[in-house]
């Protein structure tokens, strides 16, 4: 099994090193590739089972775009062919149409899905998150400068339904993006660590034949249940 941490020296903010560590512990036998920002992503030319892209600064996000845009068609082919790709944080914004800055500038993105991200650098959106994915509760936090707005000329599948906190944007009922094996979300925690049931179902379903290990699963479940209980308190805030 091969797992690629894409642009890992710049795409590792907001605690998502925790998810990278977890992946290393779930798949101890896997070959891990750390692809720096100046290098061509390995999964474009080689078989990579899982690509992970973590949260970046805005400058890092623009560098990542600069690197990915020349491979736009190839990357889409991979996604259509079922490439497993998880991006947590502002990585999912790269897959939309554009990012609009405070100054009104539009930064062109990969344009696979009909949405755009609006940055407001002096209005950080932060708080708790509780969602539902087919009956499974998804927990975590949010901390971002952007809100994502769907465009009218198409649709895309959300990752989960919002029960508490902000989804794609304030007032949105959906959070994240889920298309084939591409999963994008702004839910932090770290996302995989704080959602052990989802992580086991999703990764177990995709890579059950790779002898995954679920480290400290009971402890992770204790933390999950405790957080869920707190989040379900009507007075909960974050």
């Amino acid at each position: 099994m091969r797992i690629e941490f894409l642009f890992s020296e710049v795409a590792n903010y907001l605690g998502e090193r925790g998810d990278m560590d977890l992946l290393r512990q779930i798949f101890p036998q896997a070959d891990f590739i750390d692809t720096p920002i100046l290098a061509k992503p390995a999964f474009l030319d080689e078989k990579v089972d899982l690509v992970f892209l973590g949260p970046m600064s805005e400058k890092g996000q623009e560098l990542a775009l600069e690197k990915l845009l020349p491979y736009r068609d190839k990357l889409w082919e991979k996604i259509e062919a079922g490439q497993v790709f998880l991006t947590v944080g502002n990585g999912m914004e790269l897959f939309g149409r554009y990012i609009e800055t405070d100054e009104g500038e539009r930064i062109p993105c990969l344009n696979y899905f009909p949405y755009y991200a609006k940055r407001q650098m002096l209005k950080r959106q932060a708080g708790l998150f509780l969602g539902d994915k087919a009956g499974l509760k998804i927990v975590g936090s949010k901390a971002q400068f952007t809100q994502i707005f769907p465009l009218d000329d198409g649709d895309f599948s959300r990752f989960c339904r919002v029960e508490k906190g902000m989804g794609l944007h304030k007032g949105s009922e959906g959070e994240g993006l889920h298309y084939k094996n591409l999963l994008g979300t702004h839910i932090l925690g770290p996302f995989l660590v704080v959602n052990p049931v989802f992580t086991k179902q999703w990764l177990g379903g995709l890579f059950g034949d790779q002898n995954p290990v679920w480290p400290y699963y009971d402890l992770a479940m204790d933390a999950y249940h405790r957080r869920l209980l707190d989040l379900q308190n009507p007075k909960a805030h974050g």
Partner: peptide, 30 residues
């Protein structure tokens, strides 16, 4: 009723606390 964003915990270098000189690590709070 405040629910802390725990993401920062995962950027701590907790490996230091694995040192044999540290006998106990006590975790507090919610």
């Amino acid at each position: 009723t405040y629910v802390e964003n725990t993401a920062w915990l995962y950027d701590n270098d907790f490996r230091y606390l694995a040192d044999p000189s540290i006998v106990q690590v006590i975790c507090c709070g919610k």
